Simulated assay, not measured.
Amino acid sequence: MLFARLLAFVMAAALAVPGFVCASPLPTVRTAWLAEHEAFAAWYAHERKWDAENGISLELVLFPTGKNLVDNMRGAGCVIGGAAAVFGLLDKRIYVIGVGSDETAANAVYVRPDSPLLALKGENPSYPELYGSAAAMQGKTVLAPVGTSAHQLLYFWLERLGTSDAEAIVIDTKPEEALKAFMGGMGDAVALWAPDTYKAESLGLKRVATGRDCGITQPILLIADRKAADADPAAVTAFMKAYLKAVEAISALPKEELAPLYQRFMRDFAGQEVSVEVARADLEHHRFLSGDEQRAIFRSRAEGGLLQAWIEDVVRFHEATGALSRRQSKALEGVPLATSRFLDEAASH
């Protein structure tokens, strides 16, 4: 009892001293990520204490797949995440609030060095960098993780060649198993993403298509739980300010400093040891977008905005493969839950 009175007296005396501030912990904002490039900026923002500078403490939670992330981020108490977001938009759980990373160059379709597809380039003059042809792909077997960005690339490659999934044979293969199975002799082509794309090239496989070759963009989107964002929009704006500051700083770092930093990020956050070569390749094949670039992307189609077209490509792919019904696709037209509000607020402060 005496100790409690003494403690109260000491606290009262301290508070009476001008300039004394009783420190209180910053509110934690839990965020959801895959072990991929887009999480790098969030990790670096926390590392440099730019989250604290904006009045929050970021906590990064690792998820195994994008679908798992979108399905479970609310249950895990995560306010913000980085993922392909189409299915979260369907039941109106999330807002699209930004672009985490452009991974278009990180996905690719590969064949063996002796593949006859390599003798066929530019069959579609609108896409002169693509290899293959509709006739050459009839009945051919392609390994791909179905429903993913690698599968989306495969879909558009085949479409640009004048054929489709229905004319080829697509075998659903987990990403970590696809390259191994292909090297073991299974299939005629394989659709991969980083870091397996780097392994494929080191093994001598030949690239026949990328998203850029197909004229598509494959972004990882920044998403926010609608309920949490509506309840505390200031926390989402604070995250966006810290994230974009990290993007700016990362973009300005010399290359010789960036790769070791990325290696540390992968080790500390993802628990993965990656070589300096893989780190450099990941940084080369992924791109962060500045705040100004992102705000331009969020403009309407009439104003030159690109986000709606990017997401419509994803929706069309999922409808073509049966993952979305026509009614569901119609519900996603115009991307009504994509908002630049938090980007705008971050820029204005």
Rank of each mutant, 00 (worst) to 15 (best):
D102V: 04
A181G: 09
T148S: 12
G334P: 09
A242H: 07
F40C: 04
S149N: 06
D165Y: 12
F288I: 11
K330G: 09
C78M: 09
V146A: 15
E345Y: 12
G19P: 05
V236Q: 11
D165E: 11
Q263S: 00
I169Y: 08
V236Y: 12
E312M: 07
L222W: 09
D230N: 14
E257T: 02
K241L: 00
A252D: 05
A309I: 08
D268V: 02
S133I: 03
D292I: 15
A13I: 07
A194N: 10
F63Q: 03
A270S: 11
A200H: 00
L2Q: 06
K174N: 08
A168T: 15
S202Q: 13
G187P: 01
W157T: 02
K206Q: 15
P128L: 10
S133C: 10
L332P: 00
I297D: 06
A209Q: 03
K255G: 08
Q272D: 13
A347E: 13
P128V: 07
V29W: 05
P27V: 07
L253F: 05
S348D: 05
P195L: 00
V146R: 14
R295V: 06
L6W: 12
A279R: 11
E273F: 13
Y127K: 03
D292C: 11
P116D: 12
T31E: 08
I216H: 05
R264H: 06
D313V: 01
A13Q: 12
D114A: 10
F298H: 04
D268Y: 03
L26I: 01
G77M: 03
A338M: 08
D51F: 06
A296R: 13
K121F: 12
L179R: 02
T141F: 06
I56G: 08
A106V: 09
V315I: 08
G81E: 01
Q294G: 00
G122Q: 06
G19E: 06
T148V: 09
E123R: 08
L62P: 04
L307C: 04
G132P: 00
A231H: 07
A178W: 04
L283N: 11
I169E: 14
A309Q: 14
L58G: 11
R301C: 07
L60C: 10
D313Q: 06
A249F: 06
K121S: 02
F317E: 02
D102I: 02
L69K: 04
P254I: 03
A242C: 13
R299Y: 00
A168M: 07
L154H: 03
G82Q: 04
G291D: 07
E248G: 09
A12G: 12
G147D: 06
N107P: 01
H286D: 13
G162K: 01
V142F: 03
T237S: 13
